[in-house]
C-alpha cells in the first residue's frame, strides 16, 4: 500500500528521483523491546513534545 503511494508521489513529480522502497517490506515484523523503567524519555511524533512517556503507550502499539 505504502509502496503504491510512494510511486504515485514520484509519478506526480518528474523532477524527483524514484526511491528504493524494498526496505519497507523488510522491517514490518519488528519486535518492540520494552523497558524496566516506568517511563521512556522520547519526543512524541504526533505532538513533537519531549518528555517521559508511560511505557504502557508503547505496549498498546
Amino acid at each position: 500500500m505504502l509502496n503504491d503511494k510512494e510511486k504515485m508521489v514520484s509519478d506526480g513529480n518528474k523532477e524527483v528521483r524514484k526511491v528504493q522502497l524494498t526496505e519497507l517490506k523488510m522491517i514490518q515484523d519488528l519486535t518492540i523491546l520494552g523497558s524496566d523503567d516506568s517511563a521512556d524519555f522520547f519526543c512524541d511524533v504526533n505532538t513533537g513534545i519531549c518528555g517521559p512517556v508511560p511505557e504502557k503507550k508503547e505496549e498498546e502499539k
Binding site: 526496505e23 523488510m26 522491517i27 515484523d29 519486535t31 521512556d40 504526533n46 512517556v53 508503547e58
Partner: peptide, 18 residues
Amino acid sequence: QGVPFFVFDNKYALSGAR
C-alpha cells in the same frame, strides 16, 4: 511513536533515551 527510534538488524526496535 517517538524518537529516537532504534532498529537493530531490521528485527528488534526500541524508542527513547535508554
